[in-house]
Write a protein that binds this DNA or RNA. Structure first.
Lengths: 223, 223
DNA sequence: CAATTAATTAACTGTATGTTTAAATTAGCC
DNA sequence: GGCTAATTTAAACATACAGTTAATTAATTG
């Protein structure tokens, strides 16, 4: 009845074929969608279908651009995760031999990164710390020397010089550092509702964390 | 050939029917298996099948004892999780008005509980903090008044009296406390491999945490 | 010892996964 | 303009696994 013999019910449903030079960099859009699904469902449970739907395409297109789910994950690690690790490692390498400076650089660097990568804390908790997490090996094999090991070694050296509270363990201090930064950021939606804390912004969180650490390190400051 | 017309290939594979008064308290065994699966797969991804297999039975038996996955989860919360919360809340209520005593009670209480409930930290991170976690509402609705709110209020009162570093936020201090206890315990498998830290036991972790907090609270101790 | 109830498994039905193949539509180059 | 290569969808495939119902065996009770 409605003119033409076109047999499509949904006029907006796309048919096969190369698009009209419209939306470019589909690959990046697909990666964005993947990050979102990785966060909300977890990497293991995130299906290529849900990722495709979020990007407004079909699952076959994900396969076209990345080949497989594993390679999609590899691409995410290389193009979205590792650049941040590199930047943080660099900023840590640039500070002098002082525990407070080291800790401050870590806290500030992390907060700054999370400003642009808000998904990082949640994903970290789930996929690095969580049992069966898909990124744990990435930490142990690729990230480990650049950040956590570097920090632990420098803390140990500083402690030997007497510049750090002797009751602390240099390695556990790195763990504490993550527990005081990534964890609160990941838990933000929880404590916000729990304490009805609308007044606390990221700057306040950073101040609180640095205040706790500044004293907690037990740097005598007596030279 | 092999005698008898019994048509079963696996002699040990059980056939339907009530068992011969053997293994009692299947319900508890099922709950144990459920906890294991909740930890390794996450609550959402833990199937009645995997739980049943872990307990050596069929999925239909889980359905028989609990009725549904939701009711199984309810049973877990009521019978395995809440008793711990009650105990911790009680031990917090029993200490006097001193920030160090409060913090020490929390850290010690948590470490003591985890001795018997080793699955707690990992499950907490995944199901309370993690996006879409199945226990977040339990925290907000059932646990909230007994522990986190209680702590935050007492910290706030102590700060008003000048017994706590003014640069700290009482609510965020509760978050920091969790980040310094539950998080390191959940991350234990990671930092153990990361730093090859076989020498660190739970007592050492507790000492380190308390050392960091003792100074970090900034209690002047000058009266 | 018959009837009923409790405990257990086998089988069913449905849905979702990641991947592959084939076809369709357009872009870019000679 | 015509050819080839690039980009996209539809459809199908092969598993795998979800939660539930129906049948089966043993214990318990009158």
């Amino acid at each position: 009845m409605a003119a033409k013999a076109r047999k499509h019910r949904h006029p907006q449903a796309r048919r096969p074929g190369r698009p009209r030079a419209d939306e470019a960099n589909q690959r990046e859009r697909l990666l964005d969608a993947a990050v979102e699904c990785f966060c909300s469902d977890g990497i293991a449970a995130a299906s290529l279908r849900s990722i495709a739907v979020k990007a407004g395409v079909t699952p076959a297109l994900v396969h076209y651009y990345f080949g497989s789910k594993q390679k999609l994950l590899d691409a995410f690690v290389a193009e979205r995760l590792m650049p941040f690790v590199g930047a943080l490692g660099a900023s840590l390498g640039a500070v002098g031999d002082d525990p407070r400076a080291l800790v401050t650089a870590f806290v500030r660097g992390l907060h700054a990164a999370v400003e642009h990568l808000p998904w990082l804390p949640g994903l970290w908790l789930r996929e690095v710390i969580g049992e069966g997490g898909a990124l744990r090996e990435v930490l142990l094999e690729q990230i480990s020397p650049a950040v956590p090991r570097l920090l632990a070694e420098r803390f140990a050296a500083l402690q030997k010089e007497g510049a750090l509270n002797d009751d602390l363990d240099p390695r556990l201090l790195v763990v504490s550092l993550v527990g005081l930064t990534l964890f609160p950021l990941a838990a933000e939606p929880v404590w916000r509702r729990l304490f009805d804390a609308r007044d606390v912004d990221h700057a306040a969180l950073e101040r609180h964390t640095l205040a706790l650490l500044d004293l907690g390190l037990g740097v005598t400051d007596a030279r």
